Measured scan of single mutants.
Amino acid sequence: RVIAMPSVRKYAREKGVDIRLVQGTGKNGRVLKEDIDAWLA
């Protein structure tokens, strides 16, 4: 299970990103909004 705040999950869904593919850089591997942006870049 991916650790991410609900707002980040929603952001990823809106961008069409599968959050399971994104490498989290936050505490304990948490996926941050910046990680979604970096994955899209």
Rank of each mutant, 00 (worst) to 15 (best):
L40H: 06
V8F: 02
R9L: 13
V17R: 01
V8K: 01
D35W: 00
G29H: 09
R30F: 09
G26Y: 02
D18R: 05
E14Y: 13
A41G: 11
R1Q: 13
V8T: 07
G29T: 04
R9F: 15
Y11H: 05
K10M: 09
A41V: 15
A38L: 14
V17I: 09
G16C: 07
R30P: 02
A41W: 15
L40K: 06
K33W: 07
A38G: 09
Q23F: 15
R13V: 11
K33H: 09
K15W: 10
A41Y: 15
E14K: 14
E34N: 12
V2R: 08
D37K: 06
L32D: 05
M5R: 13
W39N: 04
K33V: 10
T25E: 03
V17G: 01
G16A: 06
I19Y: 05
A41H: 12
K27C: 08
V17T: 03
L21S: 10
T25H: 07
P6T: 14
M5T: 15
V2S: 07
R20T: 12
L21V: 15
I19P: 03
E34I: 15
K27G: 09
D18A: 06
I3L: 07
A38D: 12
P6H: 14
V8Q: 02
V17M: 04
A38H: 15
I3H: 06
A4G: 05
G24K: 03
T25N: 07
E34V: 12
I19V: 07
D35E: 01
V22R: 01
A38Q: 12
D35S: 02
S7I: 08
V22Y: 01
A12H: 00
N28V: 05
G26E: 02
A12G: 04
D37Y: 05
K27D: 09
G29V: 02
Q23E: 11
W39F: 13
K10W: 12
K10G: 05
I19K: 00
R9N: 05
I19S: 02
R30I: 10
K10D: 07
G26I: 02
E34R: 15
R20L: 09
G24H: 04
P6E: 09
L21W: 11
K15L: 13
T25K: 06
R1M: 10
G26M: 03
T25F: 04
A38F: 13
L21C: 08
V22T: 04
K27P: 13
I3E: 08
A12N: 00
G16I: 04
T25V: 03
K27F: 14
I3W: 03
Y11W: 04
E34L: 14
A38I: 13
R1W: 03
D18S: 06
V31P: 03
A4P: 04
N28P: 02
L21R: 11
W39V: 07
T25A: 04
R1A: 11
V22Q: 01
E14S: 12
Q23Y: 15
L21Q: 11
E14F: 14
L40E: 05
G16Q: 09
V2T: 09
P6I: 13
A4L: 04
E14L: 15
D35L: 01
K15H: 14
V2I: 14
L32A: 05
Q23L: 15
Y11G: 01
V17K: 00
A41I: 14
K27Y: 15
L32F: 09
T25S: 11
R20Q: 13
L40G: 05
K15V: 10
I19N: 00
S7T: 09
R13F: 11
W39D: 02
Y11S: 02
R30T: 10
D35Y: 00
A41C: 12
A4M: 04
D35N: 07
D18Y: 06
I19M: 06
S7F: 11
Q23P: 14
K15A: 08
P6M: 14
V2D: 07
W39E: 04
P6Y: 07
E34K: 15
R30H: 11
A12I: 01
I3D: 09
S7V: 08
G26D: 03
L21H: 10
E34G: 13
K33M: 12
G29R: 08
V22M: 06
N28W: 15
R9T: 07
E34T: 15
G24N: 03
R20E: 10
I19T: 03
I19G: 01
W39I: 06
G16S: 07
D35T: 01
Y11C: 04
R20Y: 10
A12P: 01
L32Y: 10
G29Y: 07
Q23G: 09
K33G: 04
S7L: 10
Y11T: 03
D37I: 07
Y11M: 04
I36V: 12
L21K: 13
M5L: 13
K27L: 14
R30G: 08
D18H: 05
I19L: 10
V2K: 09
L40D: 04
R30D: 06
K15T: 08
V2Q: 09
Q23I: 15
K27R: 14
A12F: 01
R20F: 12
V31Q: 02
R20H: 13
I36G: 00
A41P: 05
M5S: 10
G16R: 08
R1I: 15
I36A: 00
Q23R: 13
K33D: 04
A38Y: 12
P6Q: 11
E14T: 11
I36Q: 00
A41L: 14
L32R: 13
R30S: 10
V22I: 11
I3N: 10
G24S: 06
A41R: 15
Q23S: 13
I19Q: 01
Q23D: 09
V8M: 04
R13E: 06
K27M: 13
V8L: 04
A12Q: 01
W39S: 05
W39K: 05
I3Y: 04
W39P: 01
D18K: 06
K15I: 07
D18P: 11
K33R: 12
L21F: 14
A12T: 01
V17Q: 01
V31I: 12
A41Q: 14
D18N: 13
L40Y: 07
G16N: 10
G24E: 02
S7H: 10
K15N: 12
G29M: 09
V22A: 03
W39R: 05
S7E: 12
V17F: 02
M5D: 09
L32V: 09
K10T: 06
R9E: 06
R13H: 12
G29A: 07
K10Q: 10
E34A: 14
V2L: 08
D37H: 05
R1V: 14
A4F: 02
V22N: 01
D37A: 05
R13N: 09
R13K: 10
R20V: 08
V22H: 01
V17E: 00
D35R: 00
I36M: 01
D18L: 07
G24M: 03
G24I: 02
T25D: 02
V17D: 00
R1K: 14
D37L: 06
V2A: 08
V22E: 00
G24V: 03
R13T: 14
A41T: 14
W39H: 08
A38N: 14
L40P: 04
K15D: 01
M5Y: 15
I36K: 00
K27T: 13
E34W: 15
T25R: 07
K33S: 07
V8D: 04
I19D: 01
V2H: 07
A4N: 05
K27V: 12
A38K: 13
I19H: 02
K33T: 08
A38V: 11
V17N: 00
V8R: 01
D37S: 05
D37E: 07
N28G: 11
M5A: 14
T25M: 05
Y11A: 03
I36H: 00
A4E: 04
E14V: 11
L32S: 09
I19R: 01
D37W: 05
L21M: 12
S7Y: 14
K33F: 10
D37T: 06
L21T: 09
R1P: 14
R9S: 05
V17P: 00
V31W: 01
D37Q: 07
D35V: 01
L40I: 15
